[in-house]
Structures are given as C-alpha cells and as structure tokens.
Design a protein around this nucleic acid. Structure first.
Lengths: 134, 134
DNA sequence: CGTACACTCTATAGTAACTATAGAGTCAAG
DNA sequence: CTTGACTCTATAGTTACTATAGAGTGTACG
C-alpha cells in the first residue's frame, strides 16, 4: 500500500510517517517505479507499535530503544520495566505539579469576580505584587 | 543595573531576558556607552510579573496580552477572568489525561514483573498487540 | 601602560515532535 | 491530452527557551 493508505489505516499523518522514517523509527520501504513508498503489513504493525507507545507519552528515543530491544532476540527485558517505572514516576510528578498549579490558579481567580477596570482587578494586582500568592 | 544583576535578582537567565526583549515582552532598555543594557526598578517589576505568569504556565502570548491590558488604563478586566478560567479548564483536562495515562502505564507494567527475555516480556507484547490495553 | 578576567554584545543553531508549505513529479480516468 | 488526486523532496515554522562562537567592554592588578 502507498503512504496515503497507511496513514488512513494507522491514523498517523503522512508527514508523521515520513518523519518517523527520517528519524530511523521506520525503515525505508521499497519504492514503486514512480518512487512512491510501498508498505506491507509488517511496516503497519511497527507503526502501530510506535503509535501505542506515543499514546502512552513515551518519547521517540524511548520508542526507538524499545524497538531495538524487541528486535534483539534473547535480550533481557529488565530495562523495559525500568523505563516504564521511570515513566510512571514522571507522570506522577507532573500530576502533582499540575494539581498545585490548579490550586494557585483558583486562588488567583478568587481575587476578582467581577468585570472591573484593570486598575482594580485583583488578578492583575496579584500578578504585579512581589509576594502575591503562595 | 546591568543584565547580569537583573538576572541574579529575578532568577531568569540572561538569555531569557534578552529573549523577552526580542519578543516584545520587555521594552528595549537604555544602553550604556559601551552598549550594555541598563535596567531600572520598573523593568525588574515587569520581569517579575512575567515570571509569576510563567510559573502559572500562562503562555507568552497570554502574558503579552495581560501586560498590554494592565497598561491600558480604564479597560475592563473581564477578559482577564476569562483567560484564567480557560486556563484552569485546560489544566483540569491535562490532569485528567495524565491520570488516565497513569492507569494505563500501571496496567502495562503489571504485564511483566520479572527480568525475562524480550520474547516473553508482557510489556513488549502488549505494545505489539493490535488490541493491547485500552 | 599592559593584560588578565569577568562581563556583555549579536547572531545563529539546537531542543521535541511534529505541521505546513512550495514546487515538482506520478498515475489513472474521461 | 488534460484534469485531479496522489506523492515526492526540501525547507520553514511551532514554543520557550538554552547554548555556542566570536567579538567588544570595563576594571583591577602589576
């Protein structure tokens, strides 16, 4: 199949597929007489692997690593577990950060409930003050 | 004061300060005979305003907008409230996304607890499967 | 006076993971 | 033989910085 069909089937954009190829995540496919990329089922599976990893927010270099590992028969998967554990921790940290941010934004929002002039707006005032919130 | 001192006092890097100037968030300061930037207290306050906004994850264009508004005397602050409300909603959505991601990563991690070979690793298998988790 | 050193200047490139565009070529149907 | 849908490469843009090169400034010390 040509790149357009692969894009439709996978839900990735054509540019993204070409980008993954440039980045070495997908190998260069065979080409038609007119220099069009031709993909097989195997390429589609690999692309879907990448897509699932991306939907879990793994970085492309993490994905590259997983692809390499999964194609080295007999290698141990301890590193895979480590990577996932580390990733889980990062997500937890980010959630904590965002929750703190959420509280701060709420506090900020409580400083102005009406449509005042900016001179009187508690939000602008808080942002302008040396020791606003916290 | 020169840019180095402003950087130290504000906690922003020198490059960041120059970047904010290029982006029009800070106005061009006066220059010394040797072409060094010279800042006053006013510039420092403006920089701190930007910094506080950034710590709340407001984008630079949102900050630019707030700065413009806060310097237009008599203008109404309804837009400020709107912006903050919208921002709060975005943060809430991102938290939800991350929590769902967190559950998925935990499920994934449960597929492999040992140091197996990658052929047997449940994590790799899940990622390779058409309908792995969800 | 010279020089070493800390500081500053501009311009440019790199980061992550794409997205968008221009300008050209391919291919099938009418 | 031309129209239209598709594809190709190469390049620039996105966000908010960060890092670098190569040059100039300013001051303290010998």
């Amino acid at each position: 199949m040509k790149i357009g069909e692969l894009a439709k089937r996978s839900g990735c954009s054509i540019q993204t597929i070409r980008y993954y190829e440039r980045e070495g995540l997908l190998s260069s496919p065979t080409r038609s007489g007119g220099n069009f990329r031709l993909y097989d089922h195997h390429a589609e599976e690999r692309l879907m692997f990448i897509k699932r990893c991306r939907s879990l927010d793994l970085s492309l270099s993490e994905v590259r690593y997983l692809l390499t590992l999964s194609q080295a028969p007999g290698s141990r998967c301890g590193k895979v577990n480590e990577m996932v554990d580390q990733h889980i921790q990062q997500v937890e940290e980010r959630i904590d950060e965002l929750q703190s941010l959420h509280r701060q934004l709420h506090d900020l929002r409580n400083n102005c409930s009406e449509n005042r002039t900016v001179e009187d707006c508690g939000i602008i005032r808080s942002l302008a003050q040396k020791k606003g919130l916290n």
